[in-house]
């Protein structure tokens, strides 16, 4: 029946991956996303790439935000993207990376399929607007 009201809510997974204990940023972003009306699933610290893949697939999130400050993005991010592909979950998930990422690496990550990289100084408004504009269309 057409009377059903669709209730689309943007779902995000904020993920801390690898041996990196700096979660202040991930917390602040989770709160900001929540206040923007998103549903935020927070992974907790020290997650393995396969754990992030599992959560992304099962939770069917629109956005996967990976926070990495350890410098290990070159190994961890490709692992996650490969995992997503193996479950057909890559194409309709917006993958974002936040943290300290050198410019050269940023280009590489984007080539792999990361939609955007947010470094120090990126504002909440900017990130929320980006998510709203780029959230994948689903049927």
């Amino acid at each position: 029946m057409s009377a059903d009201q669709e209730q689309r809510t943007i779902r995000c997974l904020v993920a801390k991956v690898g041996l990196d204990g700096h979660d202040r940023g991930a917390h602040v972003i989770s709160r900001a996303f929540r206040d923007a009306g998103f549903e935020v699933i927070y992974s907790g610290l020290h997650r393995a790439p396969e754990e992030i893949v599992q959560a992304t697939v099962q939770e069917d999130v629109d956005v996967l935000g990976i926070s990495i400050l350890s410098g290990a993005h070159d190994t961890l991010v490709p692992d996650i993207i490969e995992g997503l592909k193996s479950y057909d979950a890559f194409d309709d998930t917006l993958v974002l990376v936040g943290g300290i990422i050198p410019d050269d690496d940023e280009a590489e990550l984007k080539e792999l399929g990361v939609a955007e990289v947010f470094g120090p100084g990126a504002s909440m408004e900017q990130m929320i607007a980006y998510v709203r504009e780029n959230v994948p269309e689903r049927e």
Partner: peptide
């Protein structure tokens, strides 16, 4: 705002990589 932080997954670390445990977080929306 309708927003939510779903944190139950944080405590669920015993079944990493085991897809036969399917965890889904839902919020009390609507």
């Amino acid at each position: 705002t309708g927003g939510a932080i779903l944190g139950d997954r944080i405590r669920m670390g015993s079944n990493i990589g085991d897809m036969d445990v399917f965890v889904r977080s839902m919020s009390a929306r609507g």
